[in-house]
Design a protein around this nucleic acid. Sequence first.
DNA 1: TTCACCCGTGCCACAATGTGGAACGCCGTG
DNA 2: CACGGCGTTCCACATTGTGGCACGGGTGAA
Lengths: 250, 250
Amino acid sequence: MEMKSVTRSLRILEAVAQHQPVTVGELTRLFGLPKSTVQRTLVTLNEAGWLRANRKDTTRWEIGARVLAVRPAALQGSSLFAAAREPMIRLRDTLNETIHLSVPDALQCMVVVDRVDCTHAVRTFYAIGDTSPLHATATGRAILAHLPKADVDELVERGLESFSEATPTDPARLRAELDRLRADGYSVNRNQYRPDVCAVAAAILDEGGTPLAAVAVSMPDSRYEAERLPEIGRLVADTAKEIAARRAGA
Amino acid sequence: MEMKSVTRSLRILEAVAQHQPVTVGELTRLFGLPKSTVQRTLVTLNEAGWLRANRKDTTRWEIGARVLAVRPAALQGSSLFAAAREPMIRLRDTLNETIHLSVPDALQCMVVVDRVDCTHAVRTFYAIGDTSPLHATATGRAILAHLPKADVDELVERGLESFSEATPTDPARLRAELDRLRADGYSVNRNQYRPDVCAVAAAILDEGGTPLAAVAVSMPDSRYEAERLPEIGRLVADTAKEIAARRAGA
DNA sequence: TTCACCCGTGCCACAATGTGGAACGCCGTG
DNA sequence: CACGGCGTTCCACATTGTGGCACGGGTGAA
């Protein structure tokens, strides 16, 4: 399948999002495309309502608001999103660490959909929309642990990429870890994906036991204390359960 | 400018967002396009990461997570978004009415970017991503009041569409209303856009006095009490100021 | 002032690209 | 068993996007 113009337009749209407000020239240099091609694409995206000219410098382009109506199903009607908000803030207040809400995207990756920051000067940073691998993160494994075995097999067959020395690349080790976290109710990631980033996560399940999302407490390795793990794990698991209950009640 | 395929692809993407999870057939009926055209578009959008097949029914399509990384500048880094969250919740707790956060989109419309619900059985409903006209809403006028006169002129020249008997379609009346709200610090909309929906809003300004967004308390007409207006107006204006201060401090 | 440079924009002949009717294989139903 | 509807695939055609080029304006150096 081709649709070169569509693919290119979406790439340009993504580039605008990253560099906004951005000019035609900057984009031509970024992509190495003819000016007229980029220009035409921008005008088209603008007419479709996905871009708009910056009000102060009308030769610069920004993302328009049309995009906000286009969201993954898990966030539509914001039942999950809204239900998660207050429990997340409360968890942040209890621990003063950054809290993330992530959803799985087609077993390919986890995507950060919401964040509540801590007040420490040193804090972990993920932007909304950032992605991470399922097998190497606390949120990813929290989801995996509640999926059918066939899905885990599928993931294993695709290969467990290594991101650091701590990444669980051995299928047996991954499966053992999933068994453990099913028992404990929370998953732990210590420097397995990004160096110096640790997290404790728990899955948010729907009525049928399908995992919809995961909440995670995320902190730099310097503040990770193994002896507090059971306490933090319980707090995260309770938060996940509370979110699930609120969502169901809405 | 044309780019028919791009325009159509974006339309289809928006339709998927509204109807997800959706099949090829449903979309062909919706648009009256040939099956092969829709099919090709969906595959292309999927390859670009914007769509994905539903895990349970792989012939149904959903919005993928790629979209989340594409957001208007006002929400990037989520300085505004994150700063607004807690003050909005506090305002909701005080009044127990739904609170909206909206940003202007190129003087064309206001877009709801966040929402905190009240607990009443009867509540106003706007989804995230919904748009509304600037001149006929409390949030829109809160923004307009802090823009240069030329911008208001531009809007007036484009015409003030009527949405209900209460919509201010007379330019003089609109300008008078803007003057009033600049003095009071908050704007009021009583059934001017959607019948039975009232709102009280205030603008969130950046350091230079440019309006970035507006917060609004939104309620059904049945709970609107004119005598409480000064009190509610002050609360909303204070919330807007607090959000602005938090944003600047981040 | 003049010149040179780079910007965003507009044009248009060419052919690469997307189009959509038709056909296929599959499934559940009458 | 035949039918209707589904998602998917194919391919000749011509519509559609392409990109080199040129224009006009703004800016900075000579």
